[in-house]
């Protein structure tokens, strides 16, 4: 049975409207509702299903971020993950933290925990980088299967169906492997109340980047964060009849 590591990032909830900080150096996060990155939720769900099918023996969820990152680890634990590791990054440092930093930390934990499969969301909905899985595989020098929509585990390998432009690609990778989860891989469950209560008692280990031997010094400087230009209310309509109906509805034509 495989040991599985999943990455869970705390991001601003996708139902919340994003607001830019007055100094234009980032987005407002204070008092804003956060949740687990939806693609990471899919990764967690896949790992939990593996455990339910007795393919996985233990699942570890890792989150890199400030103290509140523990919230999403708790969510993962409530969904069925066994233990959590919180890599504590001060809020200020977190602003310039990049996929390269995170992948080095994930790689180190993957080695320390002797995991066979790393499953990460294909991208986070805040920075949309889509790099962490690829970089983690590179740091570890493991095979990678990105944008997975189906994962089947064999004895010493996994067969992964990938969503690519214009179709599906099926690849086979030797273990250990890094996989990134795409939208259609599964539909994440709702954690049940008994499991939410139980999750409060599951262990979360706190470590620092230093413990993992990773330098999190900024490699970039944020020059400016801007809102996208406001779109001038255009809509796409299916046919001429709808166009005529819309014009009449608005009282523009008789």
């Amino acid at each position: 049975m495989a040991r599985v590591l999943v990455g869970v990032k705390r991001v601003i909830d996708y139902a919340v409207k994003i607001r830019i900080k007055p100094d234009k150096k980032g987005v407002l996060t204070d008092g804003v509702k956060h949740s687990m990155n939806p693609f990471d939720e899919i990764a967690v769900e896949e790992a939990v299903r593996m455990k339910e099918k007795k393919i996985a023996s233990e699942i570890i969820a890792v989150s890199c971020g400030p103290a509140q990152a523990q919230d999403v680890i708790r969510t993962a634990l409530a969904m069925g993950v066994d233990k959590g590791i919180h890599v504590d990054i001060p809020a200020k440092e977190f602003e310039t933290l990049q996929p390269l930093h995170v992948s080095k930390m994930l790689a180190k934990i993957a080695q320390d925990e002797k995991v066979d499969i790393v499953i990460l969301g294909k991208q986070a909905i805040d920075d949309d980088c889509n790099q962490t899985a690829q970089m983690t595989a590179a740091v570890l020098d493991w095979p990678q299967a990105t944008n997975a929509s189906k994962i089947e585990k064999g004895d010493k390998d996994v067969t992964v169906t990938r969503e690519i432009d214009g179709g599906l690609e099926v690849i086979k990778c030797k273990l250990p492997v890094v996989i990134s989860a795409d939208l259609r891989l599964n539909e994440p469950r709702y954690a049940t109340l008994p499991n939410i209560m139980k999750a409060k008692k599951k262990p979360i280990k706190k470590v620092t980047p230093k413990d993992l031997g990773v330098d999190t010094a900024a490699r970039i400087e944020i020059v400016s964060v801007e809102e996208p230009p406001v779109r001038k209310g255009g809509t796409i309509i299916p046919d001429v009849d709808t166009l005529v109906a819309k014009l009449k509805e608005g009282g523009f034509v008789p």
Binding site: V16, H34, Y190, L193, P194
Partner: peptide, 15 residues
């Protein structure tokens, strides 16, 4: 009183 349940505290899940 309840046999099972779930809880949503995040806007997307609340919706």
């Amino acid at each position: 009183l309840a046999l099972n349940g779930t809880l949503a505290t995040e806007p997307a899940k609340v919706n």
